[in-house]
Every structure is written in C-alpha cells, then in structure tokens.
C-alpha cells in the first residue's frame, strides 16, 4: 500500500511531537570562568540525554541582575556561593537545589616561560611593572588575589602595580597580551589535561585564600523542565566531575 499524503503528515506530526516531549531545551546562565568546561559537559549531556543546552555566559553579578529582571534562565552556574544563596532566599531559585559544582583554584601566571617560580618568590622580588587581578569587588578570583597579597604581607608593596580586569577573563587577557607581566587568574584558564598549558605559573596554596566555592542552583523557571532537572543531576555525576577536574577545578 502506498502511503497517502494524510497518513504521511500524521506520522510526521506524531514523530515531531514525540521529539518535543523527549528532547527539551534548558537555558543555563554560566559564570565566565566556566565557559570552556560547560561546553564540554553540555556536549556529553546532550549526547546522553537528547536534551539541548543553551548557555549564556557573563559575570556572576550581571547574570544575577538579568535573572532578577526576568531573563529566561533555568539553571545558574555562578562563580561564587553567595549569589545562588541570595537568589534562593529571594525566591528566584528552587529551595534546597543549591550545590557546589566546582571549587576554583587561584594561580599566579605569566605568559613568559620561567618567569614565575613554583613558590611565588617572583612576587616578593617585586621585579615587574604590572600585576593583573580581577576586580576584587566583583570577581571572587580578584578577592582571593587580594587575600593572598594580604597574607604574604605584600599588599602595600604591589598596590601601585595592580591593574584590574572587570572579570577574570579580562585579567587573563592583560597577562596573555603581555601588557601585565604577572597576574592572578583562575587555574582553569591556563590548565588543560592535567597541566599548565603555557607560560609559567605558581598554583597558590589553598591556605592563602578563602575557598572559591562555585555554586549552582535550579532557578524557579526551571522547576517544571525535565531537561533542567536532568542537567543539574548530570552536573553532580562522575562524567561532569571528570571534565571539571581536567580543567583544574577542585571538587
């Protein structure tokens, strides 16, 4: 029997409906420092679940403002633990859905090989013109950098040499372009497959700064979306953990 046009249409319609039911879309707001790993995690998640991830990247503070003003995000991966907590207390996020998906590590980095020693002595010698950090008011990595300088007793000595990026990406850019000889950046920015990918670096001991806990939360808009819930679960799972570690985050 030849398929009639109406039957064909019906079959087509039914299969489209089936697709829509299974493959939902999830909109994620992601802190800039987690851009590369979330792309890799999303690719794995899409393959395993059939859902689709749409990610928007930005500074945590800016994403917060967007969420508060009706942005269509369903999951939020922040660069700190205070912003997701704040969203939860303000009723913008699902209560109890908050968890730490990664712990950021701070690194003193130079684009030049051999400039940074593995104990960070280069800071004490003070033989550089500019030290790049993230803005301590707005970026957790910038705040951590000032804590390190305080604990090393170098805050006053290097103050005239500090240049600030609005976000950690920009702080990295200043160093990568050679305009600042040194910079405190996120390990994830200079770390690939278990080692520093270029230049020279000192991975700052965790005791010198408060832990940079990056929390994720299921936003109120994502509550009824199976794809959003599935992504949150996937982020807690072993496959995501492997990617997160490979990018130099702790767990």
């Amino acid at each position: 029997m030849k398929p009639s046009p109406s039957r064909l249409l019906a079959t087509l319609g039914a299969s489209l409906l089936a697709c829509a039911a299974h493959a939902a879309e999830v909109q994620v707001a992601v802190a800039a420092n987690f851009t590369a790993p979330i792309k890799e995690i999303a690719a794995g998640f899409e393959k395993d679940s059939g859902h689709k991830v749409v990610a928007a990247f930005g500074p945590t503070g800016g994403l917060y403002t967007q969420v508060k003003n009706g942005a269509p995000f369903e999951v939020f991966l922040a660069a700190d633990d205070t912003t997701p907590a704040r969203l939860e207390s303000e009723g913008e996020a699902v209560a109890g859905s908050r968890f730490t998906y990664a712990i950021g590590k701070l690194v003193l980095w130079s684009a030049t090989a051999g400039r940074v020693d593995d104990k960070g002595e280069v800071l004490k010698r003070n033989a550089f013109r500019h030290l790049s950090i993230g803005n301590p008011k707005t970026t957790p990595y910038g705040l951590a950098a000032t804590q390190v300088l305080d604990r090393l007793g170098l805050a006053d000595a290097v103050k005239p040499k500090l240049v600030e990026g609005t976000n950690i990406t920009q702080a990295y850019q200043f160093v990568a372009s050679g305009n600042a000889e040194l910079g405190f950046v996120a390990l994830s920015q200079v770390y690939r497959d278990g080692r520093i990918s270029g230049g020279s670096a000192w991975i700052v001991p965790a005791g010198l700064y408060e832990p940079i806990r990056q929390d994720a939360v299921l936003l109120a808009r994502g509550k009824g979306n199976p794809a959003a819930v599935a992504l949150v679960e996937y982020l807690k799972g072993p496959k995501a953990a492997a990617v997160i570690k490979a990018y130099g985050y702790g767990l």
Partner: peptide, 8 residues
C-alpha cells in the same frame, strides 16, 4: 577605557 585602563 575598560579594555585598556586596568581600573587604576
């Protein structure tokens, strides 16, 4: 300014 300045 943001890209070039370094917020000093």
């Amino acid at each position: 300014v943001l890209m070039l300045g370094g917020n000093i």
